[in-house]
Amino acid sequence: MKPLLELRGVSKAFGGIEVFNDVSLTLEPGARLGILGPNGAGKSTMFNLISGLHRPTGGEMLYEGHNLGQMKPWNACRRGIGRTFQIPQPFGDMTVAENVIVGCTSGAGLSLHEARDRAHDILEMTGLGDHRDKLAKSLALLDLKRLELAKAAAMKPKLLLLDEIAGGLTEAECDTLLDILQKVVRRDTAVIWIEHVVHALTRFVDEVAVLADKQIVVRGQIDEVLENAEVRRLYFGAEAEV
């Protein structure tokens, strides 16, 4: 199968500081990949690169064969790349429903009428139905995270980038979030999910990759990756010699 997303030797530096060096990654349509890695490893930078908010300083990024490195964020979105932000970025002075409608109209190109219908469905699925007429800035954290997801899901992305949407949630809230994810993310949507909450990740993704020291150090089935010596070193420090 032709890959949906292909990163070939991508690097990114801000001024003299390199955050990303020679990263390569391919993703098939409908694949679900989790990304682990310590803070500051460049995980969110990777999303900013894929969603067009940042330009890579080196390497090549292809999405459905198009050069993603030169694509503007709104074009990346219109071609089907949806994302959430680690720190929720609501349109504060718009209502919850209006926030989702933006995704349907600008992102998916729906008419206002169609957008209202879809927003209604997505809000019901994400459990935000009762909040639809509230201003987004008045929502609590869990609901803001749901709104991030609702906005991105509303545009029916081919590739969905989830940035730590389970962070800061209780275990019960995590369960709810996973239920919502199963409902709103269609089976043919490819997903890359950055997450520290490993138990949430394992219930959703097919495989994981670990981003550390500016590179992807390992990728594979989740159990294998967690057993990997390099990963154990990164997460738990060097193992004591007995």
Partner: peptide
């Protein structure tokens, strides 16, 4: 920024 990421 969020608007751009949502197609605006």
């Amino acid at each position: 920024t969020a608007a751009m990421a949502l197609g605006v």
